[in-house]
Write a protein that binds this DNA or RNA. Structure first.
Length: 533
RNA sequence: GGGCGCGUAGCUCAAUUGGCAGAGCAACUGACUCUUAAUCAGUAGGUUGAAGGUUCGAUUCCUUCCGCGCUCACCA
């Protein structure tokens, strides 16, 4: 325990570090070297992985293994170890799966057994030997040669309860991943989901592209951006809140089917459903409208669910989500459907038409229904309708449900409805809700550059009114539209939330490997600090 | 940001009305050549998140702060 090492401990101080254990294990490592092993060897050549051994020999009866001896070399991390005098058992783990090894002094020799006695839970080893079944029938490796591969200098979580401290799990995901197999499973599944989506879109002629993460104007969504700075150009840039406007520029450029799966950054709250950086799929298809996208979405998500879960039904909390049963409701229909009885007669479609009728509707609702929906009479009618929908309906939308036809006031990038009587106030847009969560947002893309300019100008008015999230003017985007964009449908799907639904994870932090946390305090003792200052 | 809850050994948790801070696992020493939560014997491990207050006495009660979780708001 030299004082010079104290800085090294500082950051690990609170995080399950026992300096004594660390030093004891370093000493064991020296003893292992003294036995002729490398402390940090360069490679090991296994003949099988543990999962391979389990699938190939997991069912083989003991007699067969005896009759045709199977020699293997296999490596893994020790997850359990039992020593009994001159023999012992251990379980080694690879890819979340465990295999038992049997180490007998007679079989591995004095030095081999000395090494075995110096091993700790968490160490990496390679073993050469043959497969057999123990008296209880467990497939095991009868070890003839033990090779040390790497030492775990830090103690692992207690073996019954494992790593349960939620903060530690997120901070030390590297431990979480090998200690909790179900955590590993979630991230393997996440990878399969993304892979399945790519395969689905690739098969339909989409090409995958990458567009700027750092943008001079944070557009394509309504959200607060992160700001960063480029030194040489001496300009502020925004981390993108959406790739939308760039992807549509590509549609103008003739890349008729494009998609991007990548990170968005929004400088907003953190919750079980929100991480400041999150992954979105956005895809755009020329010559398609929003109805086409609903069909495509149904097809895509039901096939992804089937591929990844082996079933179109996934469990999420209390709910069973059936990815083959889709509902479609207009936003106004949803408000009517979930209108609370206490608030009197259900609204008529005409109630959504004017400022006065909406005002009356909100007052009737808030007079009888708690909690009150937030309401600013100065807001455009459309904004109030959208707020009412979220207030009344969102939480009820458990099975996959498309909510379509949004107010123009909350949709600066969507195309007006084609029906003449609704053109002025409504747009062709839908959102997909599952388990009360919004997981997709799509529309027939507005491709009239002059209408787009008017929409941006309206957003600037909202901005002046104090809505800091209202969309900024993007002249280059209008210029791009002015070159002519074909009719196009575009959609964004939240990959993190989709993964939550398909893996039964009720927090977004359980599907993001390293969710944003407050930085760890570096707890250096105060007197040590002042002594060195 | 608001509300609720939690913080005790490396880990998971106890501690009676406010009365000597404990257990299991992990660690260390010893025994044990088919164990699997191995077993048996022994040893060590603590500024009870921090500071202050009440009290003869605080892990326990009060205040403030710090950290974390849940939840509401904002949002996808």
């Amino acid at each position: 325990m030299h004082s010079s090492s104290s800085a090294r401990w500082a950051i690990l101080d609170k995080m399950a570090l026992d300096e004594n254990i660390y030093n004891l294990r370093k000493d064991k490592l020296r003893q292992i070297e003294a036995l002729g092993q490398f402390a940090y060897p360069y490679k090991y050549e296994p003949t099988h992985s543990i999962p391979e051994i389990l699938t190939q020999y997991g069912e083989k009866p003991a007699e067969q293994l005896e009759a045709n001896r199977v020699d293997v070399r296999v490596a893994g991390r020790i997850m359990a170890i039992r020593l009994m005098g001159k023999a012992g058992f251990a379980h080694i783990q690879q890819q979340g799966q465990r295999l038992q090894i049997y180490v007998k002094k007679d079989a591995v020799g004095d030095k081999g057994f000395e090494l075995y006695k110096l091993l700790d839970i968490g160490d990496h080893v390679g073993v050469r030997g043959y497969l057999f079944r123990t008296r209880t029938g467990e497939l095991s490796v009868h070890v003839e040669e033990l090779t040390f591969l790497a030492k775990d200098l830090l103690p692992l979580p207690e073996k019954w309860h494992g790593l349960t401290d939620v903060e530690l799990r997120y901070r030390q995901r590297y431990v979480d991943l090998f200690v909790n197999p179900e955590v590993r499973d979630v991230f393997v599944k996440r990878s399969q989901i993304v892979k399945a989506i790519r395969a689905f879109l690739d098969a339909r002629g989409f090409i995958e592209v990458e567009t700027p993460m750092m943008q001079p104007i944070a557009g394509g969504a309504v959200a607060k951006p992160f700001i960063t700075h480029h030194n040489t150009l001496d300009i502020d840039l925004y981390l993108r809140i959406a790739p939308e406007l760039y992807l549509k520029r590509l549609i103008v450029g003739g890349l008729e089917r494009v998609y991007e799966i990548n990170r968005n950054f929004r400088n907003e709250g953190i919750s079980t459903r929100h991480n400041p950086e999150f992954t979105m799929l956005e895809f755009y298809q020329a010559y398609a409208d929003y109805k086409d996208l609903m069909d495509l979405t149904e097809e895509m998500l039901s096939s992804v669910a089937r591929e990844v879960s082996g079933s179109a039904i996934t469990k999420f909390g209390e709910h069973e989500i059936d990815w083959t049963k889709w509902e479609r409701l207009s936003m106004r229909e949803a408000i009517i459907k979930f209108w609370p009885e206490a608030a009197g007669a259900k609204p008529e479609m005409s109630d959504f038409a004017t400022q006065q009728s909406m005002d009356a509707l909100v007052k009737r609702l808030n007079a009888h229904h708690h909690p009150h929906m937030p309401y600013d009479p100065q807001d455009p009618v459309g904004k109030t309708i959208a707020a009412m929908f979220e207030h009344l309906a969102e939480a009820h939308l458990i099975q996959p449900t498309f909510i379509y036809d949004f107010p123009l006031a909350v949709s600066p990038l969507s195309k007006n409805k084609r029906e003449p009587e609704e053109r002025a106030e409504w747009v062709e847009r839908f959102e997909l809700y599952v388990a009360g969560m919004e997981i997709a947002n799509a529309f027939s893309e507005l491709n009239d550059p002059e209408e787009q300019r008017r929409r941006f100008e309206q957003q600037l008015v909202e901005r002046a009114r104090g809505d800091s999230e209202a969309h900024q003017m993007d002249e280059d985007y209008i210029r791009a539209l002015s070159y002519g964009m074909p009719p196009t449908g575009g959609e964004g799907i939240g990959i993190d939330r989709l993964t939550m639904l398909m893996t039964g994870s009720e927090s977004i932090r359980d599907v993001i490997l390293f969710p944003l946390l407050r930085p760890e305090k570096q707890s250096v003792p105060e007197d040590a600090e002042s002594a060195e200052a």
